[in-house]
């Protein structure tokens, strides 16, 4: 089992409901653990997964709820969620998550291919899973949720 990516690359772990995800820390601009009144829900584009706009550094950025695309039912009230501000070619955007688990070094993960039985059914939603302490974490690919690639899904 090979090591997943560069061992120097740190990764951020988060959850949607009970499902674990892992994201390269290089995508992350800031972690907003409290949403407060900075999220404006009147600007939404649900077909694109955008549930509102976040006031962030004197500008407004779109906030994407990945549970829509992944069909995950989240038990966490909106005000208790966190937002990860991510960078993309189109500018910063927010990713709504249920829980921030923490940050770990890349060397703590092992590659874990999708089982042949599931590959066909899941590959249009996610393609890679890493194991950390015998728990699977889905590799979150931001480009599938926001930006030009995301708009073509």
């Amino acid at each position: 089992m090979g090591l997943a990516g560069s061992s120097a690359e740190r990764k951020l772990l988060f959850r949607l409901d009970k499902v674990g995800f892992v994201l390269s820390l290089s995508h992350v601009v800031e972690i907003c653990k409290r949403i407060d009144n900075d999220l404006n829900l009147s600007c939404r584009d649900l077909p694109q997964g955008i549930i509102g706009a976040l006031h962030f550094r004197q500008t407004r950025i779109p906030v994407v709820d990945p549970t829509i695309r992944l069909d995950v039912s989240s038990p966490v009230p909106l005000q208790e969620k966190a937002i990860l501000v991510l960078k993309s070619a189109e500018g910063n955007w927010g990713l709504l998550v249920d829980e921030i688990v923490g940050i770990k070094a890349g060397e703590q993960f092992d590659d874990c291919p999708l089982p042949p039985l599931l590959k066909g059914a899941l590959s249009s939603y996610y393609q890679k899973i890493l194991l950390c302490e015998d728990e699977p974490f889905i590799v979150f690919e931001p480009e599938h949720y926001y930006g030009l690639a995301g708009s073509n899904r």
Binding site: P115, L117, L118, A121, P136
Partner: peptide, 23 residues
């Protein structure tokens, strides 16, 4: 056992056995 999103009909969850996912 671990839930995964968008599991196909007939698959409850996955488990980890010998560092691989098992449906």
């Amino acid at each position: 056992c671990f839930p995964l999103p968008r599991l196909p009909h007939g698959v409850m969850s996955v488990l980890v056995d010998e560092s691989r996912l098992v449906p």
